[in-house]
Every structure is written in structure tokens, then in C-alpha cells.
Amino acid sequence: MANRKRRSGSGIAVSLLMLGFAVYFAFFRNAPTNSSPEKERLEKPVKAKKAKKEKEPLRYLTVFEGKVIGIKDGDTFEILYDSIPEKVRLAEIDCPEKSQAFGKNARQYASDLCFGKTVTVTSTGKRDRYGRVVGTIVTQDGINVNEELVKAGFAWHYKQYSKSKTLDAIEQQARDKKLGLWADKNPEAPWEWRKERRRK
């Protein structure tokens, strides 16, 4: 009798164990497992890095003809030459900055002289630290823009970079006649103005 009870008890235990395996295989074995965050990170598509656009080397320019398409301020022009815009900084002179007294007047005067016109730029081939061609601009009707700005009192002769006696004389005439910025009692030179802004 005791043997029968033992056999039926062990039979129930085996049945329960088999039932447990059957449930496990039916519901859990083929269930999708959550992928680990590490795996997910690996599976994300990697974005290709954009190749950096290389700057084209600046052209060596001495004498060239082009159309004035922009005037940043009195002494900085944009000239279209050979379908490529070139920034030109007028040599030997310095106009007031845009936010300085007479800065807008200088820009307007320069614009009236040559905006939209074909001009000739003469340079030594030198560029300044901003990559601008440093040169003299002459219009087709023979107006030297550098000299005209000084003559009208909208530019200084930039003596730090020029020993021109012609520009010296032209500036002195504008001072004597109190033209443009020389109408002010104490006009501030643009190089001094820039130095002051850098300090601040």
C-alpha cells in the first residue's frame, strides 16, 4: 500500500514537471527577446561625414578689369572679374568705418563714383590679411577712385602704408577747405577708431 502511494506521488511530480516544460516551450522559447541597448546602438545607420570643401587658392592679380558689384564701405569693393567676385581694398587711403561719422557718406560717395561700372584695378599682387586685393581703382572715364575719396574729404591718406606726395597734397587741400569729415573740429582717424574698439 505504501509502495502504491509512493509511485502515484512520484507520478504526479513527473507529470507536473513535464507540464511545466511544455508550457515553457509553448510560450517562452520562441518569444522575441528585447535587444540590448548596446545592440541597438550598433544597428543604427552611421551617417557619413560630409567632406570639407577646400578653399580655392587666391588668384595672383596685378592689373584686371571688372564690374563693381558691391561696396562694403568707402574703401572696400567687390568686383566681378572673369565671373568670380574679388574683394578689393583701396590702397594708400583709409575711409571712416560704417559706424563712424562720415562712414555712410564715404560709402555713398564711392557708390556714386563707380557702382555698376566697369573699372580697372591696379595692384602689386599683394593681398591684405582678409584676402582682399590691395589696389587702385580707375573708372573707364579716368577717375581715380582712391584720390577722389581723399579729395572729397571722405578718406585719409594712410601714411603708415603710403609715401605718396600726391595724396598728401590732396588731403591737405580737403582739410583747408573743410570738406567732408574735415568739417568736424576733431575727426577720428579710422585706424584709431578700430584700435579703440579692439581695446573695448
Rank of each mutant, 00 (worst) to 15 (best):
V121F: 04
E92T: 01
T136I: 15
D128T: 08
E86A: 06
C95Y: 05
L61T: 05
P96Y: 07
K67H: 00
F102Q: 03
S83T: 15
S123A: 14
R59P: 06
C95Q: 07
E97D: 11
R127V: 11
S99C: 00
R107V: 03
V145T: 06
S123L: 04
Q108V: 07
A91Y: 13
E54C: 00
I93S: 04
E56V: 08
V138L: 02
Q108K: 12
N146H: 04
E147P: 01
Q108H: 12
N144C: 01
K151A: 12
Y60P: 00
V133H: 09
V145M: 05
I143A: 02
E148F: 06
G103N: 04
D128M: 11
F64I: 01
W156T: 10
Q100F: 11
K126E: 14
L58Y: 01
F115R: 11
A91I: 03
T76N: 13
E148R: 15
D73E: 10
T136R: 07
N105G: 14
S99V: 00
Y109R: 14
A106N: 07
G135E: 04
F115E: 10
Y60L: 12
S111R: 12
F115A: 12
E92W: 05
R59H: 05
L58R: 10
G74S: 01
G74A: 04
E78R: 14
T118Q: 13
Y130V: 05
F77Y: 14
V68C: 01
T118P: 03
I69E: 09
V138K: 05
P85N: 04
D82M: 02
A101V: 09
T76W: 02
G74T: 00
I93K: 07
I84W: 05
